[in-house]
């Protein structure tokens, strides 16, 4: 009978080890402990040895770029899935952080590590202040306004001919050494990744998710949603600004291409591919997309076509993303059962 076929459904069961290793019990055996820690260790160790195994200077540079995009992608994922604000303005964060760092380094002569630190904080403050009036906006409106900010700043710099105009600010100091550069970037990404994962599970993170879920109830609970949104935007834009500040010191140049749409679209693509809402997924997505895009560099703008199409494919097929898929396979086994 044909209907027999349809009366089966997929059953998903948690693996016994997952059930056992929830909570403190994990400390009881090495097997359970390693079940929890191995995936994390693979990520951390893998990242730390990455600079050691890279064949050439060029690919070492790619690691840094991956890290910058990863910062942006994590910040996008955080804002979109834990706060409910979809920002298409990754380039805005990059540009603000980058230009501040460039000015600090170029005009005041601050060493790169200092200017990066300062521009992360100051840039995040500026981004938060600028986005503050937009925070009550929802969905499409917020997305559009964040998409417009980087374009606006780019045109403004062009029109006013400030901050080096179309030529940009040249001759910035680079990092003291390539090892410092790479490990600084890697540590920042790992630090932010695990920091954010912890944050979203604290009570503050819970409140942010509540703002996304149901902002009216949060208001009725005596909390200002704008305040909590601003906190989250500050954190997210700090990540973006950090990325931008590092970028200008890696390329030793800051120009209006910092506001380029690449910085807005690629992190989104990485998030969608890697698995949104996981925070690790975006990192994974960047690890896949950025090197591919570097390999395709010879084909010029074709790479943009390529990752736009990947993005469309993933969105249209409503894919859950690699990370969610991987987590499911790791924690559960699936089987077909007859109903």
């Amino acid at each position: 009978m044909g209907t027999e076929q349809e009366q089966r459904r997929k059953e998903r069961l948690d693996r016994g080890i997952k059930v056992r290793s929830d909570g403190l019990y994990a400390l009881m055996s090495w097997r359970e402990l390693s079940y929890l820690t191995v995936p994390r260790m693979v990520l951390i160790v893998g990242f730390l040895i990455l600079p050691l195994i890279m064949p050439s200077m060029y690919w070492e540079r790619v690691i840094s770029i991956v890290c910058i995009y990863a910062l942006l992608a994590i910040s996008f994922d955080f804002m979109a899935h834990f706060l409910g604000l979809v920002s298409l303005g990754g380039a805005f964060f990059i540009g603000v952080g980058g230009y501040i760092s460039a000015v600090l380094n170029h005009s005041l002569g601050l060493p790169p590590l200092v200017s990066i630190a300062v521009s992360t904080i100051v840039g995040a403050l500026i981004c938060t202040l600028v986005l503050l009036p937009c925070l009550p906006l929802r969905g499409v409106y917020f997305a559009i306004v964040t998409l417009m900010y980087p374009l606006f700043l780019a045109r403004l710099i062009e029109a006013l001919n400030i901050l080096g105009g179309t030529d940009g600010i040249m001759g910035l100091d680079s990092f003291p050494g390539r090892w410092i550069e790479q490990y600084f970037m890697i540590l920042m990404v790992l630090g932010f990744l695990f920091g954010m994962r912890r944050l979203v599970n604290t009570d503050l993170g819970l409140v942010l998710r509540a703002v996304k879920d149901n902002d009216q109830a949060v208001r009725a609970s005596g909390m200002s949603i704008t305040f909590y949104k601003a906190i989250a935007v500050f954190i997210a834009s700090a990540m973006g600004c950090l990325g931008g500040a590092c970028l200008v010191h890696i390329y030793m140049w800051a120009g209006i291409s910092l506001f380029a749409l690449d910085f807005s679209i690629l992190p989104i693509a990485a998030t969608v591919i890697g698995g949104s809402g996981t925070l690790v997924g975006p990192l994974l997505g960047c690890l896949i997309l950025v090197p591919i895009s570097e390999l395709l560099r010879a084909f010029g703008t074709l790479r943009i076509v390529f990752y736009s199409l990947i993005l469309v494919g993933f969105i249209v097929l409503r894919s859950e993303g690699l990370m969610v898929y991987g987590q499911r396979k790791y924690h559960q086994f699936e089987r077909w059962v007859r109903v």
Partner: peptide
């Protein structure tokens, strides 16, 4: 937004290529 934007991007950059 993302899907239509990505399609637009693909078309434009495809033409450029």
């Amino acid at each position: 937004i993302i899907a239509s934007y990505a399609i637009g991007l693909a078309i434009l950059e495809g033409f450029r290529w």
